[in-house]
Amino acid sequence: MTKAGDLCLSAAGARVILATSSDERHPAEHIMDGNPETFWTTTGMFPQEFIISLSGVFKINKITIHSSLVKNLRIETSISKEPVNFEPCTEKVLIFVYLLIYICFLLPQLSGIQAAHLRFVILSAYDHFVAVYSVSGDT
């Protein structure tokens, strides 16, 4: 049984299988490396997205994201074997926090939603670039 909060860590078998921005100094793998000091940066223009594939299908009750300067965020989930057929899970406007990492808790519209893949779409931001430090999914 996977411990709560571990779902989105690479140590738990999760992988980032797509990211629309890639500065090799700040790759999307940094989101799930368990290190709070590393991050993924977007490199210009919106929307931007990344997809995390979990090690199996899990029931998710809460998603926590540590980020900077993200404004509109949409999360979609899929239970397919392949990362297709995504369904909207939740959408939120994050508040503007200057010079701090913003920690946001998102509750899926259906609590206890099942997911094998999580897709994070950053629709807009408070700046030209955003950073995502970590994402965790709690069962």
Binding site: R25, H26, T43, G44, S68, I101, F129, A131, Y133
Partner: peptide
């Protein structure tokens, strides 16, 4: 200018942790 702005922003992101 856009490039410098990116570099500045990344430094900011680093300083937040």
């Amino acid at each position: 200018s856009f490039y410098h702005m990116y570099q500045e922003r990344v430094e900011n992101f680093k300083s937040l942790v």
